[in-house]
């Protein structure tokens, strides 16, 4: 009764095309969500450290609210909760033009933005206070100090945890299948529907995720080495 593998299902019929479609959707979804997450993360991560209480409170609220609710709930929120707030005509237009994809993108981006925010905050806070004081003493405004001194250093320090978070984001994009976004995991299930070959389809999906993640990790570690500030960190990690 042992399982008989039949790998040919992966390249016969439409399977290959579906996997490719799924891969493209996963990449589009993740890339857009990543840009949103990084923008929100840098903004709120920086705001959480500024010397002005209302801004800190707003950023803290964003982080705690969005990271402490499961991603699945956010998917449903953006897909089922937000559209009814819009006029009927706009809703119909959205539903005809890939509302699932955009709902999934916002869910993923806003959720991971809250998590990235914490990474960025820890990067900023690891910079000695004296460095900020020194920048201000040189005549920079708070905004200039952040833009020219604090953030450029912090962003370099946090490359490893941001890589971690980015890989999580990529893998979490599979949750979007719950709101019918036809991404990679969705397509592996599609193959299963047509061929009743679940293990082969899942294996193909797993390998694609693995290759994607390893490539991203590799790119990030090259970035880390390329942009390292000589002398800033005692030992540049031997990654890659």
């Amino acid at each position: 009764m042992s399982y008989q593998f039949k790998w040919s299902v992966l390249w016969s019929g439409q399977s290959g095309y579906w996997l490719l479609q799924g891969l493209i959707t996963t990449l589009e979804l993740s890339a857009l969500a990543w840009l949103l997450a990084v923008a929100l993360g840098i903004l709120s991560g920086a705001l959480r450290t500024v010397p002005f209480r209302p801004l800190r409170a707003a950023a803290t609220f964003y982080v705690e609210f969005f990271r402490n609710v499961p991603l699945l709930v956010w998917m449903f929120f953006w897909y089922f909760g937000v559209p009814p707030l819009l006029p009927r005509g706009v809703q119909d237009w959205l539903f005809d033009h890939g509302a699932e994809f955009w709902a999934g993108m916002f869910a993923l981006g806003v959720y991971h933005g809250a998590r990235m925010s914490e990474v960025i905050r820890s990067g900023i806070q690891s910079i000695p206070r004296t460095q900020f004081e020194a920048s201000v003493a040189m005549g920079l405004s708070v905004w200039q100090a952040y833009r020219l001194v604090i953030l450029p250093i912090a962003l370099r320090l946090i490359v490893p945890p941001i890589t971690n978070e980015s890989l999580n984001l990529l893998k979490n994009s599979s949750v979007a299948l719950t709101i019918s976004v036809a991404e990679l995991t969705f397509q592996t299930r599609q193959i299963e529907t047509y061929t009743a070959r679940a293990i082969e389809a899942l294996t193909a999906g797993t390998l694609i995720y693995l290759v994607l993640c390893v490539s991203i990790a590799w790119v990030m570690s090259s970035l880390e080495r390329r942009y390292a500030i000589p002398g800033l960190i005692a030992r540049v990690g031997g990654a890659g």
Partner: peptide, 8 residues
Amino acid sequence: QALLQGQV
């Protein structure tokens, strides 16, 4: 739910 709300 999607039918109820008009997504489909």
